[in-house]
Every structure is written in C-alpha cells, then in structure tokens.
Amino acid sequence: MMPLPYRVTGRRQETSDTATLILEPVRQPMAAARPGQFSMVYAFGVGEVPISVSGPPDADLVVHTLRAVGAVTRALHDARVGQVLGLRGPYGTDWGLPVPVGSDLVIVGGGIGLAPLRPAVYHALDQRARYRRVAVLIGARTPDDLLFTKEYDDWRAGGVEVGVTVDRADTTWAGRVGVVPDLITGLEFAPESTVALVCGPEVMMRFTARALLRRGVPPAAVRVSLERNMHCGTALCGHCQLGPLLLCRDGPVVGYDRAQPLTGVKEL
C-alpha cells in the first residue's frame, strides 16, 4: 500500500492539458503492467489518483498519459523531468490480450480514453500477423485534443487501419467530423470473430457498444474500461463500487455483457 518512488525521466506535452510522463524506479520497481491496467500515482503531499498505463509492458519504466482535471492531476501534469512521484500497482483487470488468432481487433478510443488503449495498439503492431484486421478508431473534441498524433502513420505502416474523427473542427482540419460510433458504420470486419476494446467517456462507450452490437459483435466480445472513484486500488475502501463490481479489482476492463445492465441504471 506504500507508493514506490519513481523519477520522471521523460515528459511530452500531448495537448494543452495532457502530458505523457516516462517514469523510472528510484529503487524497487513495481511489476510490469499488462495492457489496460492502472497505477495509483502520487504527487508528494498533494494526493493520489488512478492513472492507466499508456506504454508497453515493461518492468524498467512506466508510461502514464494524464490530463489535468483536478488538483492532483494538475500537479502530476506539471511534473518536470527529474521530479520524483510515487507509484503503486499495477491494479485491475487488463484488456485480455492476446485475443484468439485470426480475430479482428477493433480498438476505439475517445479523448483521453486512447491512453489506456495504446498498449493494446502496441500489442497489435507487435503481433500483427496474429490477427486479421486491426482498426484503431479515435475520437476527440477538436483536432488539438487528439493524442499520439505523431504515431498514427507508424501504426498505419504497421498494418493497422487508423480512423480519426473530431466533434468540431476549423478549416485547417482535413479529417473527418462526427462521432466515433460513425466510424464503425463504414468499417469492414467479421462481427462474430471480432473483439472490440473501448475506452472513453461512459456515454461514448455506450453509443460505441451499441453500434458494434448492431453490427453483430457479441456483447461479451466488447470490452469497455469503466471508471469510478478509486482510492485504494486494492478493493479495501469501497469507493469504486458499481453494483456487484469493485472496479479496482473486477475492472476497469469489463465485458459489455456485464457492463450494460449496470451502466444502464442511473446513479448506481
């Protein structure tokens, strides 16, 4: 339950309010996170928040991409190279990779939701021959809010279809305008052998799952990453309950067959 000191050895400003930190253990490292898992990240004296791992599984360094939305995330976002933060983890369920050979893999990320999916994209690139089609569908508020844009060409070069859409754009934007579920409409995949990994705002995930289900993807093959207030990460504090689930232990990644009835109940 005690945070391990990690030093910031790299930092990239992704958007105006989002940064990626590369963290290396000062002394003892935590176990390598599997794609989809999260750590509790501590800013000295300020507080601790759950942040998904956005880099490849690696015991020697941990990569987190985080958005400044509150006091703690602001402090973490503002961390400079050389600064020491605390990490606990990794916690929670993962994306369940690899999925069966020959599957179509549809990865759908909205906003900061692309961060926990990036390790899954890396997995798909690494084992591209294992799968039939691999598509990454990305949505954001505006073009300026898109994450990891410098990598999209590499992903495409690696045999991954990348679809990008934004909610609103100015005249400099040459890409698509519309919501992420719209990208599913035109996508070619074999529904019965597709696994979809979805992360983003809850409403976006609901609409995305609906579009996938309408195309015939089985609900259990749609995996969503849910979020609730997490304090301990170890199923001891009770904050992250969603009905029968303790999301730090039974989530964040949950099959839509389980998530649908729970997220459908208001204020559960």
Partner: peptide
Amino acid sequence: LQATRMRLLDLYKVP
C-alpha cells in the same frame, strides 16, 4: 440526430 445530440453533450470537455 443522435450523433448530433451526442456531440451536443460535449463529452470530452473538462468538467
């Protein structure tokens, strides 16, 4: 219309 309503929600905005 539904897609437009979804955009109207401005889901990615910082609360």
